Computed example of a mutant assay.
Amino acid sequence: MKLIVTNEAEEVLIQRIGYKKSFIITSLNPRDYRVADRGPCAKGSHFQIIPRLAENRFNEQYKWIIENEQFRVYVAQSDVELLGEWITIEFNHLLNSFTLKNEHHILDHNIKLKDYFFS
């Protein structure tokens, strides 16, 4: 798995969690991921980004590491298949949220950083 973080998304993530820090990308309902292509509109509809602020808070469930130069990114085994091989995170300034895509389609249009408010 490979993760591309656009410049805009990188700036926001660095402001919120710091450079070379880690975070988790997790689906909110991995059993029903097929709804992701229906165009989520609510905040955190299908995925969320959780900053990993303390090493001891790391859950054993999130042990898969996605390759990325800027951040250390963890995912659960249950999310590996639905994320795909090439994942992109973009930041939408209009919505003040992230967009998560894979090589086939948009996975979620409106992801917020857990416990952070942009507006």
Rank of each mutant, 00 (worst) to 15 (best):
I65T: 14
E90P: 08
N92L: 00
K21M: 03
S27I: 04
K21T: 12
F71Y: 06
I66V: 15
R16I: 04
R34T: 15
S78G: 09
D32K: 12
F71E: 08
A76T: 09
I49N: 11
E81T: 12
E85H: 01
N29M: 05
P51Y: 00
N29V: 12
R72P: 04
K63V: 11
G39R: 00
Q61I: 13
I89E: 09
Y74R: 04
L28M: 06
K21W: 01
R31A: 15
I66C: 10
R34S: 15
F71S: 11
S27E: 03
R38F: 07
A36Y: 00
R38A: 14
I50E: 07
A36T: 04
W64E: 13
D37L: 06
F47P: 10
R34Q: 14
I87P: 10
Y33C: 14
E69D: 12
E55A: 02
H93I: 01
V80I: 07
W64R: 11
R16W: 01
K43L: 07
V75R: 03
P30S: 14
K43W: 02
Q77R: 07
I14K: 12
D37C: 14
V75P: 08
I66P: 09
T26V: 07
L94P: 03
D37H: 13
K43D: 09
S78K: 09
V12G: 11
I65K: 04
V73Q: 09
Q61E: 14
W86T: 10
I87M: 08
D37P: 06
R72E: 08
I25E: 13
I14E: 11
V75C: 14
W86R: 11
I14L: 06
F58M: 08
Y19D: 12
I14H: 06
R34I: 15
E55N: 00
K21H: 04
K20H: 03
D37Q: 14
E85C: 02
R16G: 10
L82M: 02
S78D: 05
P30K: 05
H46T: 03
V35M: 05
I50M: 11
V75D: 07
Q15W: 03
V12Y: 02
P30I: 11
H46V: 02
Q61L: 15
Q48P: 06
Q15Y: 08
V35C: 09
S22K: 00
V35L: 07
H93P: 02
R52D: 06
L82R: 01
I24G: 14
R72I: 12
N92V: 01
D32I: 14
G18N: 04
R52L: 14
R72C: 11
R34P: 10
I25H: 13
R31G: 13
S45Y: 00
R31H: 07
I66S: 09
V75S: 10
N92A: 05
R57P: 04
Y74N: 08
E67G: 11
E55S: 02
G39D: 00
S27R: 01
F23L: 06
A42C: 03
Y62P: 08
I66Y: 03
I66N: 07
Y19Q: 13
R31P: 05
V73M: 10
R52C: 13
K63C: 12
A76K: 04
F91Q: 05
K63T: 12
S78R: 08
V35R: 15
E60D: 13
A54V: 03
H93L: 00
